[in-house]
Simulated assay, not measured.
Amino acid sequence: MIAAGRKPNIEGLGLEKIGVKVGKSGIEVNNKLQTTVKNIYAAGDVVGHYLFTHVAAFQAMQIVRNIFFPGSGAINYSVVPWTTFCDPEVARCGLTEAEAREKHGDVDVFRVDLHDVDRAVAEGETKGFIKVVATRWKGKILGVHLVGPNAGEVIHEFVLAMSAGIPLRKLAGIIHVYPTFSSIVWRVAGKWLAEGTLIQTLRGIFRKGN
């Protein structure tokens, strides 16, 4: 594989002449997607954040809100999913395990392989796994990594959970259709109830008490 990369196609627009600042990654914008000229906005790959179609579309919608509804708020990149459409698909959102440990210290990591998911077994698609990185005590989801069929679809349940602050314990209590690939969400969330730091600590306390 060769990735040649991309660069913003903004040459010849004369942006500097009207006061729009351009940096190494492209047009510089604030968290409301305004350029250095406040009535000029920019979105998409030219601003150099996440070079994805879905991020560009989200940015464009945010610009419309900010133009017609002043004070509607800044854009938030803390929960940005992406998928590599290879075989099997690879999807992720949030922090990697290494990033989470660097930022939060000790974390819990839960993994379920696709060969433990009945729909994957029935379809003969058992190559892959899900890995979730969460805070040790409350099970707040910090990062999710999926490899397998429909990874780009399954990731959205975690996007919603991370955006709304829904921890693993609540995902474990949601009924999922069986058999589906999405049931892997319920499976990995259930591991928090069996293997999470909080649960293991409480079990240790009860054992000592007995």
Rank of each mutant, 00 (worst) to 15 (best):
M1F: 01
M1E: 02
I2Y: 13
I2G: 03
A3I: 14
G5Q: 10
K7D: 01
K7G: 07
K7A: 10
N9R: 10
I10V: 03
E11S: 05
E11M: 07
L13T: 04
G14A: 15
L15Y: 04
I18Q: 07
I18N: 10
G19E: 08
V20M: 00
V20S: 11
V22T: 00
V22R: 06
G23A: 04
G23F: 11
G26F: 00
I27A: 04
I27T: 13
V29T: 10
V29G: 11
N30R: 02
N31F: 14
K32H: 11
K32C: 13
L33V: 07
Q34E: 05
T35A: 09
T36K: 06
N39F: 15
I40Q: 07
Y41W: 15
A42V: 02
A42H: 11
A43S: 07
G44W: 04
G44Y: 06
V47N: 04
G48M: 08
F52C: 11
H54T: 10
F58Y: 14
A60V: 04
A60E: 02
M61C: 08
I63H: 07
V64Q: 14
N66I: 06
F69H: 11
P70H: 01
G71P: 14
G73D: 13
I75G: 13
N76G: 04
S78V: 08
V79M: 07
V79I: 09
P81M: 14
P81C: 15
W82T: 05
T83G: 11
T83Y: 06
D87S: 10
E89A: 15
A91G: 02
G94Y: 04
G94I: 07
T96C: 03
T96Y: 09
E97S: 12
E97M: 11
E99F: 12
A100Y: 10
A100D: 07
R101S: 07
K103G: 12
H104D: 09
H104W: 08
H104C: 12
D106E: 12
D108S: 11
L114Y: 03
H115I: 09
V117Y: 03
A120L: 02
V121C: 00
E123A: 02
K127P: 09
G128L: 04
F129I: 03
I130C: 01
K131D: 03
K131R: 01
K131C: 01
V132N: 15
V132G: 03
V133T: 05
V133H: 00
A134D: 03
L142K: 11
H145C: 05
P149H: 08
E153P: 15
V154E: 02
I155N: 00
I155F: 00
E157A: 13
E157S: 04
E157H: 01
V159D: 12
L160S: 11
S163D: 07
S163Q: 05
I166L: 02
L171V: 00
G173I: 09
I174E: 06
I175T: 15
I175A: 10
H176S: 11
T180E: 01
T180N: 05
S182L: 09
W186N: 03
R187W: 06
A189S: 04
K191W: 00
W192V: 02
W192S: 04
A194H: 13
G196Q: 08
G196V: 06
T197A: 06
T197H: 03
L198F: 13
I199K: 15
T201N: 11
R203L: 14
F206K: 12
F206P: 12
G209R: 12
G209E: 15
G209L: 12
G209P: 05
N210K: 15
